[in-house]
Design a protein around this nucleic acid. Structure first.
Length: 241
DNA sequence: AGTTGGCTTTCACTTACATCA
DNA sequence: CGTGATGTAAGTGAAAGCCAA
């Protein structure tokens, strides 16, 4: 079962200087693949918390004394359609002469992987190799686990953001309903009350607003229509709501 | 200096299998 | 025991960065 992953060995040699970063990506559009240098740190509050994260991983390595005590469980299943691995590595089917089996990581393996993921959302080749050795897994399996883990984190983050936006939307909707109701109440009050004061002595003084006809009479001008802005009625625009 | 092809990594999407209700 | 739902390991292809020729 233990198979050398030549590709990862090569990567470790050739790419040992590649950057490691804590980030997951926050982009959502398809086909946008930010390079590691452009990645942003993962928000700890949005990290997906799995039951396995609650497990203590201290001493895990020490308990991994025998091969069978740490190897992932392999269960039977129908043969996979996929036999070839596109990077030239031997597939599981080729390596053991049987159909590819579904691998299940042990609790200890998952716990240690979770622990490492909390430190770094991505691994450089050296870290990947070391972790793979520690877990008795192939580097490719560690790589895939981190890939899927980043995807789950991103999905969880998206769900959290979606829920937040949904609540914002509901709050705004409620606020809008309240404001519309307030407008309706003010409108009804407005119809009941006289719009303008008609002071007997001529032009309005102080806080009174003069109606256009009175103002025109007092000033001796023609009965021109008053500028719209002077008697702007905000309710006239309420249809926009 | 600009171009190109190979290599590598990451991501999104998908498939297949294991497990559970 | 059969079945659908769910979780997840793994496959695949595309995009993008790096580097040597």
């Amino acid at each position: 079962m233990e198979v050398n992953d030549d590709r990862d060995d090569v990567q470790e040699t050739a790419l040992s200087l590649r950057l490691n970063y804590d980030g997951g990506s926050s982009h959502l559009s398809t086909g946008d693949h930010p390079r590691p240098q452009a990645a942003t740190p993962v928000e700890p509050s949005l990290t997906l918390v799995l039951p396995s994260m609650a497990c203590s991983v201290s001493g895990v390595v020490g308990r991994m004394s025998s091969y069978h005590s740490v190897i992932s469980s392999i269960s039977g299943g129908r043969p996979s359609k996929v036999k070839r691995e596109n990077d030239g590595r031997i597939s599981d089917e080729e390596e053991d002469g049987a159909a590819r089996k579904k691998l299940r990581l042990t609790k200890e393996q998952s716990a240690l992987l979770e622990d490492k993921f909390k430190e770094h959302a991505t691994l450089n080749p050296k870290q990947k190799q070391a972790l793979a050795r520690q877990l008795n897994l192939r580097p490719r399996q560690v790589e895939v686990w981190f890939q899927n883990r980043r995807a789950r984190t991103k999905l969880k983050k998206t769900e959290v953001e979606c829920e937040f936006l949904r609540k914002c939307c509901e709050t705004l909707r409620e606020e809008n309903r309240r404001l519309l109701q307030e407008i309706q109440e003010l409108k009804s009050l407005d119809f009941q009350a006289p719009r303008y004061m008609h002071p007997p002595g001529g032009a309005a003084a102080g806080t009174f607003q003069t109606c256009p006809s009175c103002k025109n009479r007092d000033e001796g001008g023609s009965p021109a229509v008053a500028p719209k802005t002077r008697f702007f009625n905000p309710f006239a625009h309420s249809a926009a709501y």
